[in-house]
């Protein structure tokens, strides 16, 4: 099993990095020919960067839009953030002191994440408008995340796994020196689902993660009268003479 998981994780990591890298390159390469910030928008580029930062960190537009949904989304994303931070310790030796410091919070993060996901799922099922726009992949994504959370929390709360060995496995992976992975069903399930998540990431709606940084309606400054904005293809059109 150790070898299987080692290969799986190398593959998943490669797909994640390459897939995401290609998507980001595509977003970056595609020109935005017109100034289309949703106004009122900041007048300066720094202002626009701050606007994007607010979208990323506090979900500003979502807050304006729908308070319950905002709470569910914040629960899930901040929970996930704490959980990910807690997991950093499996990949570093020595462990950074901040990571060690927030480690006890990770458990609450896990709970918040599970609660947020459950509420999001419930909302998809109960609210007719949301059911209408939900496809199989949307349910599966929530179930996948719930599965990862559940197996992870089971290892923490119910059946402890040998995390020292798990850490050795991952540190080993990073050094191309494969160490044995403990034989534990919950761990296998957890790691398998995480690898699936990594693989589907660049092909799914999880692309909202890079997407939010590239959205022209949010990242453009409002200065079209002051600064002429011209995409390369539009400049070519102009030079083509008419």
């Amino acid at each position: 099993m150790t070898t299987v998981f080692a290969i799986l994780f190398y593959a998943a990591f490669a797909v994640l990095v390459a897939g995401l890298g290609m998507k980001i390159a595509q977003f970056a390469r595609t020109p935005a020919p017109l100034k289309i910030p949703t106004t009122p928008a900041p007048l300066t580029r720094q202002g626009a960067a701050f606007r994007v930062a607010r979208e990323v960190v506090v979900f500003e537009s979502l807050f304006k839009s729908n308070k319950p949904l905002w709470i569910f989304a914040i629960l899930f994303h901040f929970g996930l953030f704490l959980v990910l931070a807690r997991h950093l310790r499996y990949f570093q030796e020595p462990v950074w002191s901040v990571v060690a410091l927030i480690q006890p919070l990770g458990v609450y993060g896990g709970l918040a994440m599970m609660a947020g996901l459950a509420l999001l799922l419930l909302r998809r099922i109960v609210v007719a408008r949301i059911t209408y726009i939900t496809g199989p992949s949307d349910y599966l994504m929530l179930l996948l995340l719930l599965g990862i959370g559940a197996t992870g929390m089971a290892m923490k709360g119910v059946a402890h796994t040998d995390i020292v060995a798990v850490k050795a496995f991952f540190l080993g992976l990073m050094r191309f020196d494969i160490q044995p992975l403990p034989a534990d069903g919950a761990l296998y399930a957890h790691l398998f689902l995480v690898a699936v998540l990594m693989i589907v990431f660049p092909f799914s709606k999880l692309l909202h993660v890079p997407g939010v940084f590239f959205s022209p309606t949010r990242n453009q400054s409002d200065d079209p009268r002051e600064r002429r904005h011209l995409a390369p293809w539009a400049a070519k059109l102009e030079a083509g003479g008419n």
């Binding site: 977003f27 949301i130 726009i133 692309l207 909202h208």
Partner: peptide
């Protein structure tokens, strides 16, 4: 390929329904 808005918007919707 010509409009970043279109490419990013196609890929980024999470079907959250905030706009519905």
């Amino acid at each position: 390929g010509k409009y970043r808005s279109l490419q990013v918007f196609m890929d980024s919707c999470v079907k959250c329904g905030a706009c519905t």
